[in-house]
Design a binder for these strands. Structure first.
Lengths: 140, 140
DNA sequence: TGAAAAATAGGAACGATTCGCAAGAATACT
DNA sequence: AGTATTCTTGCGAATCGTTCCTATTTTTCA
């Protein structure tokens, strides 16, 4: 039983088919899927795909810097295929996570350096509130 | 067997002894303990204290706004007894979490509002890097 | 083509957290 | 005080996301 070669060449050999498709899937969405939902989605093409394989490949992609793990704070890890640095808005009602293109205020880092003597390598900003849909006073 | 009334009156009745002491413990430290370490510490005074009780009371305190849960991103939840709004610096080497008193840049919220039409209720900023101790080029 | 290296499926194992429940306080009401 | 009501607890079982282990399959590359 084969479960690998579907139709066309992977854009870059070096990765297994599974990993290749996992990355493509993450790149193609701006939602922030869990390992389980990625597993479910990929099972269409790879019926024997194991959940453990998804986790393993997610780890590989994260350590390659291709994707990012987004600790959602609710027990399940979410993954972000957006390779550009950005921040997040988390809706407290529906749980949706939205990507934000926001330049990091310059003063923040200098202040951190001056007041605490710390030089971060990375900054993560999460905003919490109601997304546009959920704050709409006029639901369906 | 009694495990409750140790020595002096709790500062505020309404909470059980266990919960009272849990809060005091969290208030008295600027580390960010896990449920397990809190459990271990409280077991000195309450030898029969159940881990489940710690979790239950942490939840209560969080929902009362007395303490804050800090999703550490490493599988274990950490709890923060610092009641004032603040941000965190997470050391990527030793895992230490440091509280930061940093005013939130004004422009950030207005920009978020203007560019994305979002009005957050809360902002969380986590800096990642090496703490002063771990970045010291001259270890012991 | 063949051997070595990398990746996979499958399932067991793990660790943090939650749940359910019977027993124990605390509080309220009479 | 006495009793009903409500809030908590301890304990153990159950859940659930994630990791680990191993035999097998794919991929790499000489």
């Amino acid at each position: 039983m084969r479960a690998s070669p579907p139709e066309k060449e992977p854009s870059r050999r070096n990765h297994s088919w599974q990993r290749q498709r996992l990355l493509e899937l993450l790149r193609s969405t701006d939602s922030h899927p869990t390992a389980a939902s990625l597993h479910a989605a990929l099972r269409v093409d790879f019926p024997r795909l194991a959940l453990g394989t998804v986790y393993r490949n997610l780890d590989v992609l994260v350590s390659e810097g291709e994707i990012e793990a987004v600790p959602s704070g609710e027990g399940v890890a979410r993954y972000d295929g957006n390779p550009t640095p950005h921040h997040h808005f988390v809706c407290e009602h529906c749980g949706e996570i939205e990507d934000l293109e926001l330049p990091l205020p310059r003063g923040l880092l200098t202040r951190l350096q001056r007041r605490h003597g710390l030089t971060p390598r990375r900054v993560r900003i999460d905003f919490y509130g109601l997304c546009r849909a959920c704050s709409d006073p006029n639901p369906t």
